[in-house]
Structures are given as structure tokens and as C-alpha cells.
Write a protein that binds this DNA or RNA. Structure first.
Lengths: 233, 233
DNA sequence: ACCTGAACACCGTTCAAGT
DNA sequence: ACCTGAACACCGTTCAAGT
């Protein structure tokens, strides 16, 4: 109906021309996250996103380059919501700060369980991941750890935290809200009744503790052990 | 051509009748693992397994209940090949035994990278996983750790080991053999050149160390820190 | 009991065409 | 520039039928 070239601008202008997109990339990513939260890991697809937005499947490719690209964006979105404040708060002792941060990261991932799985299956090199690393480096430096220990320590903590959350989430259907901890432990405990005590006697002697492997207590215990060991080294 | 009921046996006999299966479940699982090794994570499908076996897609359901079931079987198969000997060798100091076992598990998973990812996305409650847990319990008991510490410690080690391997593998294409460590580190180092030193100064100060996060050295360092911290507690 | 053949309801991605 | 429409080459799983 109107003249497309009415502005008469050319490529000489570095600024991108105003577009007439129906959505923003943020909306597309939000939709993807909604799908994951509503239906678990298998609910995310380009076609499902398109369907929820009311467009043809291929229209999604206006906003993301591929399904993998969309997944990266969702991960970034969730990671960016993790509180980093504790790590740079000079009033909090550094190991307490790491634990507080780790609990916040865990909360965020348990709120979007399907994303936790996604995070373990691709490189974490986005802006939000960098921010996390940077804040961790700051915290360990504040703790007085020598440079080498700092670098090893930052990654060891990330491994412990993401590993624990991923294994925790792997036992759920990936749809938030997850059952409360007590319920998930009880379910594990019930399943452990099937363990053959003749074949795995030492395991059978620890059924209650094993059932609680998916607990905050275990999470913090592992992290504390790691932090203690890092400091000793 | 022949009489199907020639034996005349009935359901009263508990033993299953002899079958005329074209394959064994083991062959099907082997085929699945071959597909993963040849083509990475996305290469595994029921239809691809069927294709490689030369049968119709649904014939695969004679041997596995579902795709998820097949994945569980593949994980079990890989996990069963991890050497547990070190953990029960009384001649090896217990922390050295854990590290030796962990390196063996890492080797096995780096040889089948796609399986490492699979392992983080489902519950690990198979026979092979139980055997690993049992051996770990034995090792930590031999180390003289009190019962409570043992239970926490076994899981913390599993988290650290599987978390590290999963993140390591997540940066590859999942097809063995993976490039040698030096090459993978060099590639990470090159990518890190893009890091904005103004925005992430502490990160920028550690580019060489961060590039080496995917190394055996880092792997052992994290594990040692954890073991040290566990002993102190 | 185990296979084939056919079908259902999906995928990600690409291409050509419209506006 | 962004959308529609159509297509290609896939999925997991189910059902009915053959042997």
C-alpha cells in the first residue's frame, strides 16, 4: 500500500533500516522457555514455537538461525537471571558467597528443569556464562586464593554445581514446579527398596542416605568439601 | 514348513519357549552404540538402528520397549566397561584409587562421547550404576571415612566426575576419537581471544588457564580438592 | 513370536513466491 | 524484510496382517 523506499536511504548508512517484524527475538525465546516449562524437554521444537506464535514454522527462522541457536538463547536467558550479587558482596565471607550463589543458580535451574539438561549438552560461552565466570573469579580473588588456584577453583565449582543440578533434574519429568524435596527423596527411597542386598551390601546399608542424594544438604555438603579442599591446596 | 506347536508345551512351564529372534538385544544395543560413535548424538534413532540391521523400524520394538529404553541400555553397556578394580585394590591408597577409577571412567566416556551426554539426561539406576556405587562405597570405607561422610562423599565424587566429563564432551561434536587434549585446549584458547577485556577483566587475565579447563590436570585437580575436603570434614 | 506393510502425527530445514 | 505455502527427508510409535 505504501512506498517501500520512501526514505531513500542506502547501505551507506550503517544503521539498520527500521523493520516490520511481528515479534522480537525476546518473544521467541520466551515462547521457547514457556514450552519447555509447560511440557518438559521434548516440548521444544521450532514448529511448536511457530504454532504458539501463530505463524508458519519457517517464519521462526527470521529470529533464530537454527534450533541449536534457539536453545543457546534460552540457556542464556535463564543463566542471566541468576543472582550474582553475593559473589561481589564484600560483607559476605567468600566461601559463604560461593554457596549462596550456587544455591541461587540451583533455584533458577530447578525452576526451569529442562534448561538444566540443555546446559550440559552444549558449550557455555555466551555473555551470561562469561558474567558468571567473571563474578566467580572476583569472589575467589577476594578470598585470597592464588591465581592458579583461582582458575582451577572457578571451574571445579561450576562443575560441581552444574553436575549436581543436572543429575538432580535428570530424575524428574522436567516440568516445573518439581515436587518438593521431601517427596522426591521419598520416591527415591521407595525405589531403593528393590536393591538386592546380597549383590550390593554396602549400598543396601546406606539406602536412606542414598535416597537423600537429591537434597540441598547433599548439594551444600559437596560444595563445602570442594571449597575446603581448594583452600587447603 | 514345520509344526509350530511340536513341543506341545504350555504356559504352565515357567521357562520361556525357545524363540526365533533374528538378533539378540546385545546386537541391537551394539548397533545403537555404533551409530552414536559414527555420527554423534543425533545419529541414534530407532529407524537408523532398524536400517543398519536391515529390518523395518517397528521390528526394533521386539528388543527394546522404546527409544528411552534403548538409551538406558547403551548407557549401561558403556558404564559396565569401566574398570572398578582400582577401587577394591587394598594395595592402592584410597584417594589414589578414586582418582584412578575416575580417570578410567573419563577414558571410557571420552571414547563414547555421545553417551556421556545421554548419561546426564536420565536416571542412573541400572545394574552397572549400582556396581559403581557399591565399589565406591567399599573404597571410601577402606579409607576409614565415617558412614555419613561415605554416603555424601560417594555422590559428590560421582557429581564431580560426570559433571566434568559432560561439560568436556559438550564442546565436541561427540564423535570419537576426540581431538587430542592439546588441540582442544588450543581451540578453546583461540576462541577466548574474542573475550572483551574491558567487560570481563578478571576473565581476560586468565585466558590460558581457562583454555585448559578441559584438561586431565584440571580434572584431577578438582577431584583431589574434593577428596581433600571430604577427609577434612 | 517375530516379522512386514502401512499409517499417524510429528520433526528441522530449504526453496520459491508473495507483499 | 518478512511472511506464506509447499516440499524434502526425516522422527517414534501403533495397528493389522502375515508366517
Amino acid at each position: 500500500m505504501s512506498e517501500e523506499k520512501s526514505t531513500g536511504r542506502r547501505a551507506a548508512t550503517g544503521a539498520p533500516r527500521p523493520t516490520r517484524r511481528s515479534f522480537t527475538e525476546e518473544q521467541v525465546v520466551d515462547t521457547a522457555l514457556d514450552l519447555l516449562d509447560d511440557g518438559g524437554p521434548s516440548a521444544l521444537s521450532i514448529r511448536a514455537v511457530a504454532g504458539r506464535l501463530g505463524v508458519n514454522p519457517n517464519a521462526v527462522y527470521t529470529y533464530v538461525a537454527s534450533r541449536a541457536d534457539l536453545e543457546r538463547a534460552v540457556i542464556e536467558r535463564v543463566l542471566a537471571a541468576v543472582p550474582l550479587g553475593p559473589l561481589s558482596d564484600p560483607g559476605v565471607e567468600w566461601t559463604a558467597a560461593v554457596i549462596q550463589f550456587a544455591l541461587g543458580l540451583r533455584d533458577q535451574l530447578l525452576a526451569h528443569p529442562a534448561v538444566a539438561t540443555l546446559m550440559m549438552s552444549g558449550p557455555m560461552d555466551g555473555v551470561a556464562a562469561r558474567d558468571v565466570g567473571e563474578a566467580m573469579f572476583g569472589c575467589l580473588a577476594r578470598g585470597g586464593l592464588p591465581a592458579q588456584t583461582r582458575a582451577h577453583g572457578v571451574y571445579a565449582v561450576i562443575v560441581q554445581v552444574l553436575g549436581a543440578v543436572a543429575l538432580e533434574v535428570a530424575e524428574t519429568d522436567g516440568k516445573p514446579p518439581l515436587p518438593p524435596e521431601s517427596e522426591r527423596i521419598a520416591q527415591r527411597r521407595a525405589a531403593l527398596d528393590e536393591v538386592d542386598a546380597t549383590r550390593w551390601p554396602r549400598t543396601a546399608a546406606h539406602l536412606d542416605e542414598i535416597a537423600a542424594w537429591n537434597s540441598v544438604d547433599q548439594f551444600v555438603w559437596g560444595l563445602r568439601a570442594l571449597l575446603t579442599g581448594m583452600t587447603a591446596a
